[in-house]
Amino acid sequence: MGRHASSFGAAAAAYAEHRPDYAPAAVRWALSRAPGPRVLDLGAGTGKLTGTLIAAGAQVTAVEPDPAMLAQLHRTHPDVPALPGSAERIPLPDGAVDAVVAGNALHWFDMAVAGPEIARVLAPGGTLAGLWNVMDNRVDWVAGLGRVSGSAAIGPRDTFTSWRTATAALHLPASESVARFGSPEQSEFPHGQRRTADSLVATLATRAGVLVMPEAEREDTLGRIRGFLSGTTETATGEFVVPMLTGVLRTRRL
């Protein structure tokens, strides 16, 4: 696991408090072709996707490598089986699930290893889906926030205009496992998160690129974001809704 991927544990409580959940319609679409209700939430973090999966009727098992994130998931969803493990070493038997989903996590997986593992635990015809919450930078103030924030806080996977290109094939099972999956499909579903200027800054502070910054650089980045939000009509006072979408990349085990 790289430095960025392993950075979240130190901010597990903030991640649980500030990161958005996922659009229910996106989760329903991700699971709509799965042959059954058994779902593995892989790289589940603090359980942001887990709750939406449960609401959609899934029988969820969660797997997460970071102990602090896993402990937070246990507190949030005490009835969900939550196991230590990773995409490269999934602690489940062959054919154990009908779908494997990953919320803002698929890009961290080493698919040369994880691809065969995911194929192993999926039932025939099972679904692999990655979900990403992306900011709708077709909205002027969101585009401006992206320019001020820099790619560490709002990167290519984090905006509507670039997430499809950033995720189209880069994170699907590769090498010998590619023949085990069909052609990928992508779709987006409207979403939003109610924030204040302070809580949006706190949300962006949980991004991996920001978490690994030297302290002075991190404070400078967050200070620029605060300044932008306080000087922008839509975000200067009170609560507002951050316009978002949940993007889904879906493929099927053959």
Rank of each mutant, 00 (worst) to 15 (best):
G2T: 11
R3D: 11
R3V: 12
F8Y: 12
A13S: 12
R19N: 08
R19E: 03
Y22A: 07
W29F: 10
W29M: 04
S32H: 14
A34C: 07
G36Y: 08
D41T: 10
G43E: 00
G43I: 03
A44R: 11
A44I: 04
G51H: 10
A56E: 06
Q59V: 13
V60W: 09
P65L: 02
M69P: 07
A71R: 14
Q72M: 13
L73H: 14
R75Q: 13
V80L: 01
P84D: 08
S86Q: 04
S86K: 10
S86D: 02
E88G: 09
I90L: 09
L92T: 07
P93T: 13
P93D: 12
D94L: 08
G95A: 10
A96D: 04
V100M: 02
V100D: 00
V101G: 06
A105W: 06
L106I: 15
F109Y: 03
A112G: 12
E117Y: 04
E117F: 01
E117P: 00
R120Y: 02
A123N: 11
A123T: 15
L128Y: 11
L131Y: 02
L131T: 03
L131G: 03
W132I: 04
N137R: 05
N137M: 06
V139N: 04
G144C: 01
R147D: 13
A152W: 00
A152F: 00
A152P: 05
A153D: 01
G155C: 06
P156G: 04
D158H: 12
T159S: 14
T159L: 13
W163I: 10
A169I: 13
S175T: 14
S175P: 01
E176H: 14
E176T: 14
S177I: 01
A179P: 00
F181E: 03
G182T: 15
Q186Y: 08
Q186N: 09
S187N: 15
G192S: 12
Q193M: 14
D198S: 13
S199Y: 09
A202I: 07
L204R: 05
A205V: 10
G209V: 05
V210N: 02
V210M: 03
P214E: 12
E215K: 14
E217Y: 04
E217T: 14
D220P: 00
T221A: 15
I225V: 15
R226A: 07
F228A: 06
S230D: 12
S230V: 08
S230A: 15
T233S: 14
E234T: 13
E234D: 14
T235M: 04
A236C: 02
F240D: 02
V241M: 10
V241R: 11
V242S: 08
G247K: 06
R252A: 14
L254D: 12
